[in-house]
Amino acid sequence: MAQTSTIARGGGSSSAPARRRSHRPPRRSGAFPPRAIPYLLLLPGLLVIAALLLYPLYQMVDMSFHRVGLRQIRPNPQPAEFLGMGNYTQVFASDLFWISLRNTVVFAAVTVALTLLAGTLVGLLLHRLGKKMSTFLIVGIMAAWATPPTATAIIWKWLFDADAGVVNWALNLLPDGLATALLGRADWSGEPWLNSATTIYLVLIVAVVWASFPFIAVSVLAGLKSIPSELFEAARVDGASPFTIFRRVTFPLLKPVFSVLLVLSLIWDFKVFTQLYVLAGGTTNREAFNLSLWAYTEAFSAPPKMGFGAAIAVVLTVIMLLITAVYVRQIVRTEDVR
């Protein structure tokens, strides 16, 4: 690649390669039969996906039917004992299953709803703003989007700190009467947010919504820009209110965008791990488990119960696939995968 290319980088279609090599026959085929080429190109990627995603998926299911503990993961492993549905009956009989399932589902439902709502509103706002203002806001929300999940969790842990946190300071600023009426108390000094499961999830919801609404906003904005502005104008001339315009024009046109955003948000929020791990302070607060954190804890804290952990992971995966199946079908239908 020493010689410079004849094509300008990112150049237009006018700069087609013009170098003629008349001494060569046209349409020279390579060393491989043309029909094999796509398969050869796919091979490395397919191997990676098979080895790192599909085979572990199979192994996870297989492990969930076995007792896999210390003896099976030592250098000279003993064969794992087959348990049949044993791990699963144990999962469903456990109190922790219902706690984690409730935490997982409630968190995902609330967070997805809030993220989509906030993201859509900010997307609509970006669409209405002037050019300078909209760039300014995009740069701002980009900062929230770019912050790594571990840093996000740590920052919000700090903002919600019992003694030196900004949130408790701000809540103390509220007039006492108002604070009591709204939140049930006036004095928030030293309020520990990260001790009980309920408030841990409250902080988690705020942190995750903060980090994920920018993506929704920017995607909605991109969708809005693809709609011809005549449509909005026509609706406005006909006297439609902003809400009616959204419900009757914007939403129907952006429905494919919204369904993809909904699935992506569901996937991200259903399996949230990093932020929860940091906010809950590791694996000690069992009331705050969700399914991912519970599976992780069973499999990796002493004594390791990997088969049991795998069974929890299978349950999580099945729930996720069921929820997203409908939408995968929709994407397959609307996208050009054919």
Binding site: I49, L52, L53, L54, Y55, P56, L57, Q59, M60, M63, I73, I267, F270, K271, F273, S292, A295, Y296, A299, F300, M306, G309, A310, A313, V314, L316, T317, M320, L321, T324, V328, I331, V332
Partner: peptide, 17 residues
């Protein structure tokens, strides 16, 4: 599309081994 739906956290156990 489908492999993107599988939670990485779920595959952690077999991948660890």
């Amino acid at each position: 599309l489908i492999v993107q739906m599988v939670p990485a956290e779920a595959l952690l156990i077999p991948l660890f081994l």
